[in-house]
Each structure stands twice: as C-alpha cells, then as structure tokens.
Design a protein around this nucleic acid. Sequence first.
RNA 1: GGGGCCAUCGUCUAGUGGUUAGGACACCGGAUUUUCAAUCCGAUAACCGGAGUUCAAUUCUCCGUGGCCCUACCA
Length: 482
Amino acid sequence: MIRVRIPPSPTGLLHIGTARTALYNYLFARHEKGQIVFRSEDTDKERSKKEYEDDIVHGLNLLGITWDEGPYRQSERTENYKKYLKELLKKNTAYYCFCSKERLDKMREEQTAKKFPTRYDGACSTLDPKASAARVKAGESAVIRLRVIQDQELRFKDLIRGETVFSSKEFDDFVIARRLDDCLYNFTVVVDDHDMKITHVIRGEDHISNTPKQILIYRAFGWDIPEFAHLPLILNEDRTKMSKRKNKVSLNDYLAEGYLPEAIVNFLALVGWSHPEGKEILSMDELIVAFDLSRVHHGGAIFDIKKLDWINGEYIKKAIQEDVDGFFKKYFKFFEGKIPTQNTDLIKKILKDPDFEGRFKKLSDIASELRVFFEALPAYSPSLILNEKFKVTPEIAKTVFQKAIEAVRDIDWDVGDSAKTKVLSDAMMALVPALGLKNGQVLWPIRAALSGAERSPNFATLMVYLGKEETLKRLEFALGKL
RNA sequence: GGGGCCAUCGUCUAGUGGUUAGGACACCGGAUUUUCAAUCCGAUAACCGGAGUUCAAUUCUCCGUGGCCCUACCA
C-alpha cells in the first residue's frame, strides 16, 4: 500500500508552496489509491503555533486536499523519539556532545576564513559513553550527534530526477537532538516516516541535500528507505525561492483577493507539471486521473499571477453560467460588505447578463464592476467625457447628451430587460447617423456619464439596471458639467 | 569555500538523434457597421556557451557559465 505524508511546519499561515507540495502528494496518492497522512512538524517550540496548524488544515481542506490519518503532532511524540534516541545512544551510533556553542561558532568562523568546509571536529566523539551518560544525569547539558561512518556512498533514486549520489565525506557528525526530549528535524522526519510506514516522500527540492543525512539515520537504525521525489520550487520573479518579502505567499491572501479554491488548485498543479495532452483547465478529479510524477518538470517555476488570473476568470465564467445561485451562495461571504448583498435577485440578474461574460478575473472584479449600479456616481472630471481618441469636443458631448436625454425620456421602459436593452441600444446608435458622428463620439460620452469610469459595462446594460430615473439623472449631471 | 539540483519564447511548458521546435498566459495588431471590457482572428517571440560522439545534435557525454538549494542546537 502506497502511503504519503503531508508534513507542514505550523510556523506560519498556509504557504502557497506548502499547498502545492501537499497537492502533489494528494494527487499522487489518490491516483495510486494510496493513503495520506497529515503530520504537524511542530518541534520548533518557539515558532510553532496551534493557530497556524488550524489555518493550514482549514486551507488545505478548502482546496479539497484531505487525508486518511492525522493530524499527528511531533510535539506529542517526544516519548517515542526518546526511545529511538536511546537505542542509537546504546548502539553508540549517536553520542553526547558537550561542546559549547561559543567554541563551535569560533571553530566555524576559522574554517570559513581558511575557506575550509565548516564541520564539527569530533571532539566529543571519542568520549566514553558511560561517562557521558553520567555527566548528563548529573545535569550537564549536551546535544546528541549522529556518528557518521565515513566513506560510504549515499545514493538514492529520485523518482523525478533519477540517481543522485552524495559522499558521506560531505557530512560531519550532525546534531539530531538538543536533548533526549527535544529532537531536530532530520531525526523526527525519519522516525515518523518509518513509524507511519511512509512509502513515498514527495517534497520540495530544497530537501535534496537533507536526503543523504536522513539516509544516514535510516542506516543507523537499519530501516528500509522510502522512495523520494523532489519537486521543483515555486520562485519569485527574480528566480529566488518564493518568499514573503517579494510575493504574497499565504493562501489567505489569494482567497481575500477573490481567487477561487478550484482555480488555485488548477493553477498550482500546472506549476511544475503538465497534462499529457496539454489540457490546462482541469478539475481535481481530472488531475487525479492524469497525474504522474514522471511528468513533473525539473526546473523551478516563477509564480505567474497573470496565468492564475486567466484560469480564475475561466472558473468564474463557468460557475456563473452553470449555477449563479450556487455561485452567489458559495461566495456570499466575499461579497458581503462590498456590494448590497440583500439585492440578491438583481445581482444574479446582472451577473447572468451576457454583457458581463468573461469580464471578471477575480471576485473582487465583480464587486468593483457591480458597484456602479449600487453606489452614487463617483466624482469624475469632464476630461473623462472628452475622450481625445474619439475627438469628443464639449460641443459634441453637449449635443449627444441633449439628444440622448430626449430619447431616453421618449422610450417606453415598461418592457422586459432584453427588449429594453435592444430599444435603448438602437436609440443611442440612431444618434450616430442623425448627428453625423462616429460611434465612439456618441457611445463613449454616454458610457462615461453613466459610469463615471473609464472601464464599465456596456452603456445599454448600465441604463437597464440603473433604471430610467437614474439614467436621466446621470446624463443631466454630465450635461451640467460641460 | 564545499556539495547538490537545474537550464526550450517575457512567463508556464510540450517535444525529438533528422520537426516549419508545438500549446497556453502575457504583449502587439486586426475584426466586431472605430465605446472600455469581453469575444474572434492574426503576428512577434525560445532550444545558455564551448568541445566531443554521430552522416546528423536542442536532444547523448564532458567542460564552462548562470541561477537556485543545502552547508544551524530552523523546518
């Protein structure tokens, strides 16, 4: 049975990179009909917080990433680690080290100055284990180091990259625990992956260099080594590892901007992996069917927000077409406070209007585009109306507004929305030949007057949903500005 | 400094010992009886460099260059 793990460290809100790694584990496991274990790697007591774990769990679930076991917490497994640590100590494949931090820092400094590799000199490696144990019992503090047997080849076959070889010469006797009841990352990972019967370790490529160290620990115990697969990293625009400083990194940021979970999943799957037929809009189920580690790209990938925008727009378009009610209900919380959500029917009607199809890249676009129907006209300067490109002069605008107002007054508004749209549209278009103007000279000022913005829905759509009274008010207001 | 990983359009990527090196996003242009947007159509755009192997290398090997990651009593 294939078993993978999702092992975030709860030292911050759910990071987009963590979500991507979790997603790949999820896709792989579900594709293989295997099991998924969630494990909170909270051994760093200073930085780990329960609220972060909650955020991570909630965020992953929101994306549709679920697991079969867990959450386990490393902080609740100290007795277990202690047992294994003692085993290593007993076998003398690990030993107590009493060296002071100061001495080690100084040593490292000197080695760096001489351009030597920075390594522990093994001062405590020859101490008598019994004597060391006695010192610790007497209260002296000591870390625990793994005794690295030199001259072994640390070889593993990465499922994505193939054979990778390190020499044990690269590694010194590294610290695996601060104390018997306070273990470090490389140790806890190996113990947990062993105890939890993990068969495939799928993680970011920043862990490639940790792999040989972990193999050393597996060997110290004589345990079987799982399969490894190292994923390419998600990068900032400057090709450094995606970071808070240069990018929005937490899932919450993206949700708050109005990206849909399904779209985020789709996008994340495509950062480093591609569908065999080049399909780009893929649901979670389709991803599970198609996913294959052999199609994972090797090189790191820049987080391209424009592509996310496009994917997100596709999902919004589809969601509105298929089920406005469900869509509005699902994201009600997002819209609350941004648009008058009590006008449910009108909002849904507007969203379904063909004029809006494809206009929204994010939920926030919906809020900003719909605002024009519910809020007072924004302050704008006459220059918005006097569009240079279309050669709209004040005289032309004045005439257009006067004629438009007359036409709007004369039209019978007591008809259905689509009929109304057509009548209004025809009436405005009729002004073009009547006044001997060009389309832009008529349509631009009208749309600008109705919306007070450069970007807005179509003029006829604006009129229909604004209503006769408001339409006239806004046209007259614009006329008065000239 | 040491070790490792990586390298195809601006970006995400496909692909092959012989291809017009394909797609998507972005950008640009056109159309929609010159409205923003949307939509449709189109164009521009890439195999890091040098050797080697080979009849033939973007593809295989080596070297170089560049980027990244690790090099903690973080994970």
